[in-house]
Design a protein around this nucleic acid. Structure first.
Lengths: 106, 106
DNA sequence: CAGTCTATTCGCAATATTGCGAAAGAGCAA
DNA sequence: TTGCTCTTTCGCAATATTGCGAATAGACTG
């Protein structure tokens, strides 16, 4: 029968537990949801700053308004780098990606 | 600025030369290709900094080594936010996305 | 040399994202 | 009210990304 927590000095195993098993997936989803929300908001802001309607921006990047609307929905979870870049390019910007260290309090 | 070949120990510069020289097809989407390349490199760096093998990182995010290898390929064009976040989370980081204005001068 | 660990490439199925039209809601002005 | 513009939601097909094993190559050690 399996031990609840088998002894290990395998750093990978330990980190895996910490990341996926020991923790409710809720936290990760929360952070992700927040991030998605911010992306949606950012797209909205960029479009507004450029004084474009959803239809206009859609045409700029070669898609339709419903797609833009979906991207600006705070609950949308399907953001992709490809799409963000298309929008950025249309608005004369580039997508900068950084891996920022997280401070895990206690 | 001079674009003539000069001695360099800048890894990005070296990789850039190796990737683009003699491949005019790339010049079209140069910026995007370069961005993908930097992402690949960044993943490699993060993994190395964490002292992980591809297999170990793969297990951390619940996939296989071949997937990690693909992500670290400078020619890979399929980078997604979802995957970047999984990697970031495993390495105790978060993905920060910014739309930065493009300076086309000079 | 064999053995081990790591990295890379390939092919295809499974899943996720995008494309797109149609319909309807919201707001505003005449 | 009607008309107009913009936005939002829905469903499904088309495309893109991921999962994953197997095979290969490279580096290193004894």
């Amino acid at each position: 029968m399996a031990k609840a927590l088998k002894p290990t000095n395998d750093a990978v195993e330990i980190l895996h537990r910490r990341t996926y098993e020991g923790r409710p997936a809720r936290m990760k989803n929360l952070e992700e949801a927040r991030a998605n929300e911010q992306i949606a908001l950012k797209i909205q802001e960029l479009r507004a700053a450029a004084a474009l309607t959803q239809t206009q921006l859609a045409k700029l990047i070669g898609t339709t308004a419903s797609v833009i609307c979906r991207l600006e929905d705070a609950d949308y979870e399907g953001h992709s780098l490809a799409m963000l870049r298309r929008i950025a390019a249309a608005l004369n910007r580039r997508v900068e990606i950084r891996f920022v260290p997280i401070r895990r309090s206690a």
